[in-house]
């Protein structure tokens, strides 16, 4: 009995300790705004590694998810003669939910895991230590540009995802299944509000924050062995995905009720 209580205590302490370290890393990454001359090229480089390299998967998934939504939505809506609502249905699902959420999940798998593994490997090969000994702060040099690049990339990726999804839905709904082109767009324009786009972007920023934070923290804090890195990478993706889904529920409850 006593041992179980002690175990619980140990667990809580280690969770709190981890949280504390994560917050410290976050604070120093944010507080150390990189100086522009040295920091900007690093930021651009990470924008490439994180944003540009995720582009293909985001574009392909966005288009296909839009196409599937249109196909599924059409078969249901046509029974009620409401296929005119296909446009807003697809646009609202993409802008409010699927765009930010699926982008964040794909991002966690594509870019988050790579971030964790890269930072973890830098730690294991003593590159982070050696930066410190060269009087270069690894938080500023390694963590901060990656964090900011992730934060900046995700909303852009989500917007690209959504617009391609709507394009895909147009392709299937209008070109293939024969929904009237005018109805498709005008009903969508009547029902979608600028607020939907802003809320979707806010969601996206929140997810970007959480996913990149978890990714850099897991990498920076991993046990520097091959097993430790593999575990850190897995848990980075798993935890980031769960956090995204949980956070999505909370944000949806706040924004759309």
């Amino acid at each position: 009995m006593l041992e179980k209580i002690q175990g619980l205590g140990q667990l809580s302490i280690s969770i709190l300790g981890g949280l504390g370290r994560a917050v410290l890393i976050l604070l120093s990454a944010i507080a150390h705004l990189p100086n522009f001359r040295k920091g900007f090229p690093l930021f651009v480089g990470q924008l490439y590694a994180i944003g540009v390299l995720s582009l293909i998967i985001i574009m392909v998934s966005g288009t296909f998810i839009g196409m599937v939504l249109a196909l599924q939505g059409y078969t249901v809506l046509v029974d009620y003669g409401a296929e005119g609502s296909l446009g807003p249905m697809v646009a609202l699902s993409l802008l409010r939910e699927l765009g930010p959420v699926v982008t964040a999940l794909l991002f966690a798998g594509r870019a988050g895991s790579a971030l964790t593994a890269e930072i973890g490997l830098m730690k294991a090969t003593e590159q982070l230590s050696s930066l410190e000994m060269m009087a270069v702060d690894p938080l500023r040099r390694v963590i901060a540009p990656r964090f900011w690049a992730g934060f900046f990339s995700m909303p852009l990726l989500a917007a690209i995802f959504s617009i391609l999804g709507i394009f895909g839905a147009h392709l299937v709904g209008v070109e293939w299944l024969g929904v009237d082109r005018g109805t498709f767009w005008s009903v969508m324009q009547a029902d979608v509000d600028l607020r939907d786009i802003i809320n979707g972007t806010i969601k996206s920023l929140a997810f970007a924050f959480v996913v990149t934070w978890i990714a850099v923290y897991k990498g920076y804090n991993c046990i520097p062995t091959s097993e430790g890195i593999s575990r850190a990478t897995t848990s980075s993706v798993v935890q980031a995905s769960l956090m995204v889904l949980g956070l999505d529920f909370i944000l949806t409850a706040i924004m759309f009720t």
Partner: peptide
Amino acid sequence: LFVALGIAAFLALAIKVAD
């Protein structure tokens, strides 16, 4: 290109979709 594409997507959403 990536940044331009992202901004274009935002604009397209705002104008074409939300009108």
